[in-house]
């Protein structure tokens, strides 16, 4: 794992998502109750961009077919997705975002 600082990060409004580029990966980031969550920006079902969706009850909902993934674990809550979403450890400290990704 390597820890990456994300320069110029602006937290999205509650329920919204934004995207960041970290070590060549495009990640979707949401902030819920002060905690940042980062995961792949591609739904495991049909690779739609999850950042175009929204977060509700701790789950990110894909804008294409409404698959829902737990934002902490990546587990599928509702289909049509079958495979879990890859999540990354993220931290928000004084507005600055750091994300851990595999090297």
């Amino acid at each position: 794992m390597s820890t990456h600082h994300v320069p110029g990060f602006t937290a999205p409004a509650s329920g919204d998502l934004t995207t960041v580029e970290v070590a060549g990966r495009r990640l979707a980031v949401t902030v819920d109750d002060g905690q940042a969550y980062a995961f792949d920006d591609a739904c495991t079902h049909a690779q739609c961009s999850l950042s175009g969706g929204e977060v509700e009850d701790g789950a990110v909902i894909c804008p294409c077919h409404f698959a829902a993934f737990d934002i902490s674990t990546g587990q599928v809550r509702t289909g049509p997705a079958k495979d879990a979403l890859r999540c990354y450890r993220a931290q928000l400290l004084d507005g600055a975002l750091t994300v851990e990704v595999p090297q």
Partner: peptide, 8 residues
């Protein structure tokens, strides 16, 4: 069309 968030 490409409006899943608004549709929900």
């Amino acid at each position: 069309v490409d409006s899943g968030k608004d549709l929900r």
